[in-house]
Amino acid sequence: MESTYHFVEKVIDEIAKLHQAAGQPFTRYHIGADETAGAWKQSPQCLAFIAQNDKGVKSVDELGAYFIERISTMLAAKGIEVAGWSDGMSHVRPENMPAKVQSNIWDVIAYKGYEHANRQVNYGWDVVLSNPEVLYFDFPYEADPKEHGYYWAGRATNSHKVFSFMPDNLAANAEQWTDIQNQPFEADDRIKLDEAGKKISGPIEKGKSFRGLQGQLWSESVRSDDTAEYMIFPRLLMLAERAWHQAAWEVPYQYQGALYNQSSGAFTLAMRDAQAKDWQQLANTLGHKEFIKLDKAGIDYRVPTVGAEIRDGKLFANIAYPGLKLEYRSLNGQWQTYQAGQAVIAPIEIRALAADSIRKGRSLIVN
């Protein structure tokens, strides 16, 4: 319906006026294009549009592409770059799109998400990695029913996983991660052809690279500011680390393509050791220095749970961020400061404190 495009253009023009009045350039507009399933396919209007066949649309399967292409071209004519989510953008015909396009990749790496990312960066688009199993902050930190969050793409996304991300070589993450069922997976970054010999996927072309990373917090199940801050921090700090610093331990990208799994060996023992040392340095920096800054700023970051066990009647515990204080107690008893090797009688309850010792983390029972 032509009225649809008139409406969209009117909205864009009014938004442009608001930007002009505010003195803020209007350079990019994100159209969404997320989960474009095709509910319109039996619409009488759409079927008549195809039958008319004066816009080059030959089937209902091309309707979504036509809509996105036309809106994108409209935006480009106004000097505005179009952006959208990778699934909707994957339906378009690249030759019908403007030269300048941004696509947010939300495909799961373990389920060939790297193929969409590679294909769209090879179009020359600005590809922003937004992969859910590592960059969706509405996922729980740990696989525990008491942790807030969804888990459709990954059962848990703790701060270490975000830190360990190798964004410049998506497929190489198969060497260090598992899929949602906690099973090893294989990522084949090499050229693949269909039966007719047409290329269907392959590596990134030399000279092309991803534009950046984006963290997401989908907030429909977030009911308060402190819950939002809990889900965002400290994972946001790890996102910044990976977005702004390429670590020496990251597996270099192989432009000829490569196959990665948990025995392929590209992520060497030396690289893994360097990653562990980098993590320890960062974890100590957070625990001894940065968390107190967040406390002073009034940010309710997640205080981690404690790892603990009782051996020969003595309590031993550790924490992801050294420097944070630990407390323990007999059930319903008084909280006491933890000391390694303290004699206890099981069961006991243990927890960590925020850097300012005011907020408390979630406690665990140790038998």
Rank of each mutant, 00 (worst) to 15 (best):
Thr4Arg: 04
Phe7Ile: 15
Val8His: 02
Val8Ile: 12
Val11Arg: 03
Phe26Tyr: 09
Arg28Tyr: 10
Gly32Ser: 15
Glu35Arg: 13
Lys41Asn: 06
Cys46Ser: 08
Ala48Tyr: 06
Ala51Arg: 14
Asp54Asn: 11
Lys55Thr: 07
Lys58Thr: 04
Val60Asn: 04
Val60Phe: 09
Gly64Gln: 12
Gly64Cys: 08
Tyr66His: 14
Tyr66Cys: 06
Glu69Val: 11
Arg70Asn: 03
Arg70Ala: 04
Ile71Cys: 01
Ser72Met: 13
Thr73Glu: 10
Leu75Cys: 13
Ile80Lys: 08
Ile80Cys: 12
Trp85Met: 08
Asp87Lys: 14
Met89Asp: 01
His91Ser: 10
Asn96Leu: 08
Lys100Gln: 09
Trp106Thr: 13
Tyr111Glu: 15
Lys112Arg: 09
Lys112Pro: 05
Glu115Ala: 12
Asn118Ile: 02
Asn118Pro: 00
Tyr123Ser: 14
Trp125Leu: 02
Trp125Gln: 01
Pro132Glu: 04
Tyr136Asn: 03
Pro140Trp: 15
Tyr141Met: 13
Ala143Ser: 14
Ala153Ile: 05
Thr157Glu: 13
His160Gln: 05
Lys161Ser: 02
Val162Trp: 03
Val162Cys: 05
Ser164Pro: 07
Asp168Trp: 13
Ala172Glu: 14
Ala172Lys: 11
Ala174Phe: 09
Glu175Asn: 00
Gln181Tyr: 04
Pro184Cys: 03
Phe185Glu: 00
Glu186Leu: 00
Glu186Met: 00
Ala187Pro: 00
Ile191Gln: 10
Leu193Val: 09
Ala196Arg: 07
Ser201Lys: 06
Gly202His: 02
Pro203Ile: 09
Ile204Met: 03
Glu205His: 07
Ser209Glu: 07
Arg211Met: 04
Gly212Ser: 01
Gly212Gln: 03
Gln214Asn: 13
Gly215Met: 08
Trp218Val: 12
Glu220Asp: 01
Asp225Phe: 11
Asp226Trp: 06
Thr227Met: 12
Glu229Asp: 13
Phe233Gly: 04
Leu236Gln: 02
Leu237Thr: 13
Leu239Trp: 01
Ala243Glu: 13
Trp244Ile: 04
His245Gly: 00
Ala248Gly: 11
Ala248Lys: 05
Glu250Lys: 15
Val251Leu: 12
Tyr253Gln: 08
Gln254Ala: 14
Gly257Trp: 07
Ala258Arg: 12
Leu259Arg: 02
Gln262Phe: 12
Gln262Asn: 08
Ala266Pro: 03
Arg272Lys: 09
Ala276Phe: 05
Leu282Asp: 01
Leu282Gln: 07
Thr285Met: 05
Leu286Gly: 10
Gly287Cys: 05
His288Leu: 14
Lys289Leu: 10
Phe291Glu: 03
Leu294Lys: 02
Leu294Gln: 02
Lys296Asn: 07
Ile299Pro: 01
Ile299Arg: 05
Asp300Pro: 14
Pro304Asn: 13
Ala308Tyr: 08
Arg311Leu: 07
Lys314His: 00
Ala317Tyr: 06
Asn318Glu: 13
Asn318Pro: 13
Lys325Gln: 04
Lys325Cys: 11
Ser330His: 00
Trp335His: 01
Trp335Ala: 01
Trp335Glu: 00
Trp335Ser: 00
Trp335Leu: 01
Tyr338Glu: 01
Ala340Asn: 08
Val344Ile: 02
Ile345Ser: 09
Ile345Val: 05
Pro347Arg: 09
Pro347Ile: 04
Ile350Lys: 07
Ala352His: 15
Leu353Gln: 11
Leu353Trp: 10
Ala355Thr: 03
Asp356Cys: 05
Asp356Ser: 11
Ser357Thr: 14
Ile358Pro: 14
Arg359Asp: 09
